[in-house]
Simulated scan of single mutants.
Amino acid sequence: MIRRWWSAIRGLDRFTRILLFATCALAGIAIVTSIEIQSTQREIADISNYNLSYVYARNQVEILRLRAAIGDAMLEGGNPAAARLRWAIVKGRVSTIPAAYGPVAVPEAAAARRHLEETLDSIAPLLASLQDPGTGARALRRLDALADEFTRLTALTNVRQSSLTEREQALLAATMTWLSASILALCCIGLALLALVFRQKRHLKEMAATDVLTGLPNRVAINAWRPVNARSVAVALAVIDVDRFKEVNDTLGHASGDDLLRRLGSVLREEAGGDALAVRLGGDEFVVIFTGADAWKRVEGRTAAIEAGFRTACKDTEFAWATLSIGMALGQAATPADLEALITQADGAMYAAKRGGRQSRGAVAAREADAAKAPLAPEIDPSLNGGALVRRTG
C-alpha cells in the first residue's frame, strides 16, 4: 500500500510533489499548533481558576486575628480562651497552605509555611501566661514578623500569577497567529493545487483530442466541433489521403511511414492557415475544414498549397514518390453529425480521385434544399445526381 502511494507520488512532477509535501507539512503544523492552543487555554484556565494570593491573604488575616486575640487577652480581664481558639484555627490551616498550583509555583510559600508552624509552636506555651506583659509582647512580635512575611508572599504571588497569565496569553496569541498563517498557507496551496488540477484536466483533455504522432487534433475535435452561436454555417472541407501509404510502410518501414505523416502534419499546419481546422482522422487520412461564405474558395486554394508543400517536404526523402488524393465537399453544418456527413461525402470523392488516377483531386458538393445559403461552387455541375464530381488536376 505504502509502496503504491510512494510510486504514485514519484510519478508526479516536481512542482506538484513540492505542493503535496508542503500541504502535508502545513497540515501537521496546524494539528500540532491546535494541540498547543488547547494546552495553553487549559493552563490559562488553571491559573485563573485558583487564586493563590487570596489563599495567602486569608492566612494573613487569620494571623492578624490571632494577634488581636492575644492582644485582648493581655488586657486586664481578657479571655485567653479566645486566643487559644484562634491559635488552633491558624494551626489547622498550616497544612493547607499550597506552594504551587498548576503552572504557578511559589517556593517561598514553603518557607512561610515552615516559619508559621515554628512560630505557632513557639507561642503555644505562652498562651497560658498572656497576662504577663513580657510574654504577650514576645508572642506579638513573632506574629508581626509572620504577618509581614505573608503580606510579602501575597504581593509576590499576585505579581507572579499575573505575569504568568500575561505570558500564557501572549503565547496563545502568537500560537493562534501561527495557526492562522498555516491555515492561510494551506488555503493558498489548496488553490494552487486546484488550479493545477484544472490545468492538468485541461491538458489531459487536449491530449485526448490531439494526435500524438503529428500534433494535430484528432477525431475528438470533430465530435466537439460547434459553429459560432450554434447556427448553421457554410462549410467546405477537404479529405486528404496519402497514396500507396501501405507501400511506404512495407518497403521502407514504419519509421519512414511515421516520418511521412509527421511531414504531412507540418504541411497542414503551415498551409491550411489559422482560420482552418486540420484534423487527423486516422491512419493516413486527414481533413481540413473551412467555414464562412468564401469557404469553397479557400479550400481550393489551400489544398493546392498543401499539395505543393507536401511535394517540397518529401523532395529529398526516400518516399519522395508519395502523392496525395484529395476529396472536397461543400454544405451547411450546425452539428458534428452534419460535419461527419460532409466528411463522408468528401471521403467518397477522395476515393473517386484514387480510382481516377494518382495526383488527382476529387470534388463533391451536397445537394441541399437551402442551397441558397451555401451556393455550389462554380466548378460543380448541379445537374449531377447527388452533386458528385471528380475533377482532374494533374
Rank of each mutant, 00 (worst) to 15 (best):
R3V: 02
R3G: 00
I9N: 07
L12A: 05
F15W: 15
A22N: 09
V32T: 13
E43G: 01
D46C: 05
S48N: 15
N49M: 01
V55C: 00
L66S: 01
R67G: 03
L75V: 05
G78E: 09
P80M: 02
L85N: 14
A88M: 12
A88T: 14
R93L: 14
T96K: 15
T96I: 07
G102V: 04
V104C: 09
V106I: 15
V106A: 05
E108Y: 03
A109P: 10
A110E: 11
H115C: 02
L120D: 04
I123H: 02
I123A: 03
P125H: 04
P133T: 00
R141M: 04
D144E: 13
L146E: 10
L146W: 07
L153D: 10
L156K: 12
L156H: 11
S163C: 01
A173H: 04
A174E: 14
C188Q: 07
A195R: 15
R199P: 07
R199H: 13
M207Y: 03
A208M: 07
A209V: 08
N218K: 08
N223F: 02
P227S: 01
P227D: 03
A230M: 13
R231Q: 13
V233A: 13
A234H: 10
A234P: 13
V235C: 02
D243M: 11
R244H: 15
F245Q: 05
S256E: 11
S256P: 00
G265K: 11
S266M: 06
V267L: 05
L268K: 07
E271I: 00
V279G: 06
L281R: 13
G283V: 11
E285S: 09
T291E: 14
A293Q: 15
D294E: 12
W296A: 14
R298E: 11
E300P: 01
G301H: 13
T303A: 11
E307A: 12
R311I: 00
T312Y: 04
C314P: 06
E318F: 00
A320L: 00
A320I: 00
L330N: 12
L330F: 11
A333C: 04
T335I: 01
P336F: 02
A337N: 04
D338M: 02
E340R: 11
E340W: 01
A346I: 05
M350A: 04
M350Y: 01
M350N: 08
A353M: 03
R355D: 07
G357Q: 03
G357S: 00
Q359W: 06
S360W: 01
A363E: 05
R367Y: 00
A377G: 12
E379M: 10
I380M: 08
G394T: 02
G394I: 02
